[in-house]
């Protein structure tokens, strides 16, 4: 399990290199979007309309931050549960999305689609929103301002700590971790 520093956007070479369980520090641009924004984007795609973010080659961070205090870039900003976004994720992968950051595992269909579309799912530590906010250098509103905390935002990450959960070779950290650490109950 390697420790790597990765500059975004993810290159094809880096994507092939990443393995489930690798600790990665991400720097560069990601897009913040969670439930309500995904629903809107999925509805737009279904109607054949443009979505506010060209997701080709991009990484989405599932986050709805607390409001920034005066003088701060952002409030607390940790990941939300990824599985709720599963119903919207495959369409975004088909549109060229290359990565997502969240917490908890993905369903079998998304895991398979990640391999097929050569994209990576990263875990960030849920409940570490204060710490993670220190690795976000800037925030810019992109779309759906009316959604408040759920609006789409462009974030500039700086050494943001994540762990590779699902790699393009079919590796799944959650399965590997359980297999390694479970034991017969006494």
């Amino acid at each position: 399990m390697a420790e790597l520093e990765v500059r975004l956007p993810l290159s094809d070479e880096v994507i092939e290199q990443l393995r489930a369980g690798d600790s990665v520090q991400l720097s560069g641009t990601v897009y913040a979007a969670r439930d309500a924004a995904h629903k809107r984007m999925a509805e737009a795609i279904a109607r054949g309309e443009a979505v506010p973010v060209d997701v080709r080659g991009q990484v989405i961070y599932y986050v709805g931050p607390t409001p920034a205090r005066p003088g701060a870039v952002i409030g607390s900003a940790g990941p939300t549960t990824a599985m709720r976004l599963d119903p919207y994720t495959i369409a975004l992968l088909e549109a060229g999305l290359k990565g997502a950051i969240g917490k908890g595992g993905r369903g079998p269909k998304v895991r398979e689609a990640l391999v097929r579309h050569r994209a990576v799912y990263f875990l960030a530590v849920g409940g570490a929103g204060a710490l993670l906010s220190k690795h976000i250098r800037s925030v810019e509103l992109v779309a759906y301002e009316d959604l408040g905390t759920e609006a789409v935002r462009r974030l500039e990450l700086d050494g943001f700590p994540v762990i590779v959960c699902n790699d393009v070779h079919g590796g799944d950290l959650l399965e590997q971790g359980k297999a390694q650490w479970q034991r017969a109950a006494g």
């Binding site: 908890g104 595992g105 875990l123 762990i163 959650l174 971790g177 359980k178 650490w181 034991r183």
Partner: peptide, 13 residues
Amino acid sequence: NALGIGPQAVGGR
């Protein structure tokens, strides 16, 4: 804890 899920489900005690 015997499940091995661990913190954030990365595997552990």
